[in-house]
Amino acid sequence: MQKSLHLDPNKCTGCLQCEMACSWENYRSFTTAKSRIKVFTFHHEGRFVPYTCTQCDEAWCLIACPVDAIRLDPVTGAKIVLEPTCVGCKVCTIACPFGAINYVAQTGKVQKCDLCGGLPACAKACPTGAITYVDADWTGLEKMRQWAGRTDTNAATA
């Protein structure tokens, strides 16, 4: 079964544990500037929203890459950057409609979420359940359950 990251902004508090976990996974450092998942604060709305690559099925970044440095991980479905192959041309950063793949000056390569090979560190670190790693076919399940709970069967049968 394929899984995907499920983001629920309503549960996010903006603590950035996910960003630190991501940075630790890839850099052995808590520096949030290096995270592949970002939490955005919409201050005047009182909203915190985590955002990262959604692993498009037909991935613009993968198609755009001139040196085939972005490959599909058949196990997780993640589109992963092969660092030794990447030449840092940044065409993928232009191609991605969501801004989720970015250049890293420190390495001269691009980086994006690779689902940590199937054990996403951000989901593990999230203290509120705002980031979970769930059945890719059923990311709507919790929302459906909530709506199902509101169904007034008594009124319908009365």
Partner: peptide
Amino acid sequence: LVTNGACFGCTIACGRISR
């Protein structure tokens, strides 16, 4: 009260965000 908010790294999140 709109929501609660956390400081950096905080898993308590006691902060008040008001409108």
